Lab assay of single mutants.
Amino acid sequence: MSGIALSRLAQERKAWRKDHPFGFVAVPTKNPDGTMNLMNWECAIPGKKGTPWEGGLFKLRMLFKDDYPSSPPKCKFEPPLFHPNVYPSGTVCLSILEEDKDWRPAITIKQILLGIQELLNEPNIQDPAQAEAYTIYCQNRVEYEKRVRAQAKKFAPS
């Protein structure tokens, strides 16, 4: 494992614990031996107030490669969400998460999670990743928002 990646992720964890947006979660997972795995984080993004996503808490896994922060983490909703920019596998399609697009090593975990929260309610229809959600979003916004509200209710924190 890269010392650069681990040191950056340790800084990220410290900064997150000191200050993070209300309702968001970002925690490194534990290895079988109980030690912390900084390369694999369990996160959760709350649906934004005043949107059909409100009330939901959407679980996301963030996986970092050894060359982080040169390369972005892979962000994957578990379980996958109904959304035009979420692949059926759950992987998020967002330009700041793509090395050859808008990724920059200075982007923080907090910025990534806030960017994904923004994307939930403002899909990028130029870059669809899920045919069904994309089609319904474009053709029947009322039905799309109904499905999103049902999903938010399903993923409401207990």
Rank of each mutant, 00 (worst) to 15 (best):
Q126S: 13
T108P: 11
E99W: 08
I125C: 11
L120Q: 04
K59S: 12
L120I: 07
R61Y: 09
R104S: 10
I125P: 07
E98D: 15
P80D: 12
R8T: 08
R8F: 09
N40K: 12
Q117R: 11
D102N: 08
Q151K: 05
D33K: 02
E143I: 08
K48Q: 09
I125Y: 02
S89Q: 15
F24S: 01
M62R: 00
A26W: 08
S95R: 01
I96Q: 06
I45S: 06
T35K: 01
R149S: 10
E132V: 08
I109Q: 05
L57E: 12
Y87N: 02
R17V: 00
K154L: 12
N124F: 08
Q139P: 06
S95E: 04
P21N: 06
N121G: 08
D66P: 12
P32E: 10
A152F: 07
L81V: 12
F82A: 03
H83I: 03
W103T: 03
F82V: 03
S2N: 08
I109C: 06
T108R: 15
A106I: 07
G23I: 03
K18F: 06
T108F: 15
F22N: 04
K49I: 10
F155E: 02
A131R: 05
T135R: 12
I125H: 03
P69A: 04
W103R: 00
N121D: 14
T91Y: 11
E78W: 11
R147S: 13
K146A: 14
E98V: 09
L6Y: 14
C75E: 03
N31P: 07
M1W: 05
L97C: 15
E145C: 08
G55W: 09
L63V: 15
S95N: 14
K154C: 00
E145V: 13
Y87G: 03
E42Q: 09
A129V: 00
C75T: 08
Y68D: 00
D33C: 04
P157I: 05
C138P: 00
G23W: 07
V86D: 02
A133D: 03
Q126T: 14
A5I: 15
D102E: 10
N37K: 13
P128E: 03
P79M: 13
E143H: 10
L63W: 01
G34V: 05
I136V: 10
D102Y: 09
L38W: 08
N124K: 01
T51C: 13
K49A: 13
N140H: 09
I136C: 09
K30H: 09
I96F: 04
E12A: 00
L94D: 07
G34T: 04
Q117I: 07
S7A: 01
F77Y: 03
G55M: 13
A15Q: 14
